[in-house]
């Protein structure tokens, strides 16, 4: 049974949330979720790059790597495409849409080595999604990433003002809080049956 697009979208946002159940993109999740504004900016930038990277890697994988039987080269090919592409987007945005560049530009260089972006492109290939399904999966993954960042920025402002034991101050307390947020996302698991 091939899952419908809406199921793929909701599944990627809620059940298989990239941060909270697949553990991809933990560094930006812990690093950028301190403020609401930067959480939204980073979330949108990642969503944007994930969708564009999927749109670029899909034709290259199925048009070049599969016919030439070079599928084992996908890790190298994909990371190069992503690195190149992030640079390209940055230049294009700077030149053509300065307002969007102003909002997302700061986060773009950080995204090249974000494992969520490489992860989603490899995942689409592993799941044998078609082009439309891949794009929807990337969109869902990105939105899920943004959602968890935004929710967590709220949780984190409370954690930071709380009185925690000395040894837990900083990252340990943040991780324990992340675990509780992750428990709440477990409620969605198995909802869409894929």
């Amino acid at each position: 049974m091939t899952p419908t697009l809406i199921v793929i979208l909701l599944n990627a946002i809620l059940c298989d949330n990239f941060v909270l159940s697949k553990f991809m993109g933990i560094c930006p999740f812990l690093g950028v979720s301190k403020k609401f504004d930067s959480a939204v900016g980073m979330g949108l930038a990642v969503t944007f790059v994930m969708v564009c990277a999927t749109a670029c890697t899909y034709p290259i994988y199925h048009g070049i790597l599969v016919p030439m039987e070079l599928t084992y080269m996908k890790t190298i090919a994909f990371i190069l495409i992503i690195a190149l592409f992030v640079q390209l987007i940055e230049m294009l945005l700077k030149k053509n849409i300065p307002s969007l560049y102003k909002a997302l530009g700061v986060y773009l260089p950080l995204i090249t080595t974000n494992c969520a972006v490489l992860g989603v492109t490899i995942l689409n290939v592993d799941n044998e999604y078609n082009f439309l399904q891949s794009i929807v999966n990337a969109l869902g993954g990105g939105l899920g990433f943004a959602l968890s960042l935004v929710i967590f920025s709220g949780v984190r402002s409370r954690v930071n003002s709380a009185d925690v034991p000395e040894m837990f101050k900083g990252i340990p307390a943040t991780l324990v809080a992340a675990s509780i947020v992750s428990v709440s996302f477990m409620g969605f698991s198995g909802m869409f049956g894929i």
Partner: peptide, 8 residues
């Protein structure tokens, strides 16, 4: 062994 436990 679930994701939540990993963070914890």
């Amino acid at each position: 062994i679930m994701p939540a436990g990993g963070f914890f």
